[in-house]
């Protein structure tokens, strides 16, 4: 078992996180006049006929769906907890979080495990994981729908729009 460093492995995303960090650093560096070169890396996934994304640097790993253990007295969107190499992590149903009806997971369902402090390590159940995209800064727009409060911007990738989730808002919403 890979238990020697539980919590640090991110096998499914490899070096993306590192790339993303350097990109983020470039974004933050003062006086960067080369805006057209700035790109963001997003993990794109499918949910209820639409396409969503979260910044790659927030992703720790992606695991196959496994049956979560139900937690009593929990709100609906908390599906339960799963054991993950010695850790126990909550899994949130992203469908319910975004106000859709829950659906039973299919073969393409995945759990995206987020990085963070103890209360930010969270699994998000999504319908399918599609790709990691590098999208230049100029392709981002403010969100136009805005029902859930968790989507703050959108970006265009090839022929479709992708809703970018603000993870902190999403989990903040979950806190309510």
């Amino acid at each position: 078992m890979s238990g020697a460093h539980p919590g640090h492995g991110a096998p499914d995303v490899g070096g993306w996180a590192g790339l993303a960090r350097s990109a983020a650093a470039a974004l933050e560096s003062p006086g960067g006049g080369i805006e057209e070169c700035l790109v963001r890396e997003l993990l794109v996934f499918g949910l209820d006929d639409s396409t969503y994304a979260i910044p790659v640097e927030r992703v720790r790993e992606i695991v196959r769906m496994r049956a979560p253990t139900r937690v009593p007295r929990a709100p609906d969107r908390l599906l339960g907890v799963i054991a993950l190499r010695g850790e126990v992590v909550e899994v949130i149903d992203l469908r319910r979080s975004l106000g859709f009806a829950g659906a039973s997971p299919g073969p393409k369902s995945r759990i995206i495990v987020l990085h963070g402090d103890v209360d930010r390590v969270t699994g998000l159940l999504v319908d399918s994981v599609e790709a990691v995209l590098r999208i230049s800064e100029e392709s981002f727009w403010p969100a136009v729908s805005g029902d859930s409060g968790s989507v703050v911007e959108m970006c265009r990738s090839e022929d479709r729009f992708v809703s970018v989730l603000d993870v902190d808002r999403l989990l903040g919403v979950a806190d309510d």
């Binding site: 009593p72 908390l78 010695g86 850790e87 209360d119 989990l171 806190d175």
Partner: peptide
């Protein structure tokens, strides 16, 4: 083990543990 996630303070549960083939139990 402490449960990681935004809901960890749920009353009545102190944490979780692994139980054989059954994954996590509370």
């Amino acid at each position: 083990k402490p449960i990681k996630g935004p809901y960890q303070q749920l009353r009545g549960i102190t944490g979780a543990t692994e139980y054989g083939d059954h994954g996590a139990i509370l």
